[in-house]
């Protein structure tokens, strides 16, 4: 598509550090290249605000190539914007039309407190991983990597879960602010691999327990998480999480 230049009206959530409430402010984004990314559009708006003496809009970002999981905003009601399988940094302005009004808000969930403007605190995800989202292995004692064959298909399935970037869009999109897709992806990744089996039961119980205590809701099969996931992680991972959790509760001694 040919590069064009468009003008937009932004309705942006502004919230000061340490305050519980914020409000929507209106800004103009002028002369934006359709080849720019959404975050580059915000850079341009921020430079403009700075020159006017207005504090720029705070937002999280880092790699800007869709892999670090740091960026994330709700754009026109969609986590990471409406385009499927895309992080916000990979959403390009060619998806917008000249004259559009665009609403930009933070990811909202009980477990994700707003820090400032569009920045939220997602450390609850870290707590869930700390509870069991790993395989215990000391550096030095591992057997040869080819000692444990894993079928091609199993490896691919594990990788499908392992691709999660921990951005939190699934939580923001879910009406219950559930973290089941995030947890399901990690449980699947590790439970599918033979080296992850010894701790599978303990892991499922600990991660789910922590997920609940962090204030995330439960899954009611709305599938909004799957629709908003920038890595297209499927809800079959939630089914696998449920199976692992159930069998851990019923069969295992790892309570």
């Amino acid at each position: 598509m040919e590069e064009k230049f468009i003008n937009l009206t932004l309705k942006v959530w502004r919230q000061k550090l340490g305050e519980k409430k914020g409000k929507i402010e209106t800004y103009q984004a002028k002369n934006i290249s359709t080849d720019a990314s959404f975050l580059e559009m915000l850079d341009i708006v921020n430079d403009d605000l700075t020159i006017k003496g207005i504090e720029p809009i705070a937002f999280d970002h880092d790699c800007r190539e869709g892999i670090c999981g740091m960026c994330g905003q709700v754009v026109n009601g969609y986590a990471h914007g409406e385009e499927k399988g895309t992080t916000l940094c990979q959403l390009h302005m060619r998806r917008f039309k000249d004259g559009d009004t665009v609403f930009v808000e933070p990811f909202r969930a009980k477990a994700f407190k707003v820090v400032k403007d569009l920045v939220v605190d997602r450390s609850a995800f870290d707590k869930i991983i700390q509870a069991g989202g790993y395989i215990t292995a000391k550096a030095g004692g591992a057997p040869d990597a080819n000692n444990l064959p894993v079928t091609y298909e199993t490896c691919e399935l594990a990788m499908n879960g392992a691709e999660c970037i921990g951005c939190g869009a699934c939580v923001a999109a879910c009406p219950n602010a559930s973290a089941m897709l995030f947890v399901g992806a990690k449980i699947s990744h590790l439970a599918l691999l033979p080296q992850g089996r010894p701790e599978a039961a303990k892991r499922a119980l600990a991660m789910v327990r922590t997920m609940d205590s962090c204030g995330f809701g439960n899954c009611s099969n709305e599938r909004e998480c799957e629709a908003s996931c920038p890595k297209n992680i499927e809800i079959t991972n939630i089914a696998r999480l449920n199976r692992e959790f159930l069998s851990a509760g019923v069969c295992s001694t790892a309570m």
Partner: peptide
């Protein structure tokens, strides 16, 4: 070590 820690 990476394989032991679950790198697919």
């Amino acid at each position: 070590h990476c394989v032991a820690t679950g790198v697919p």
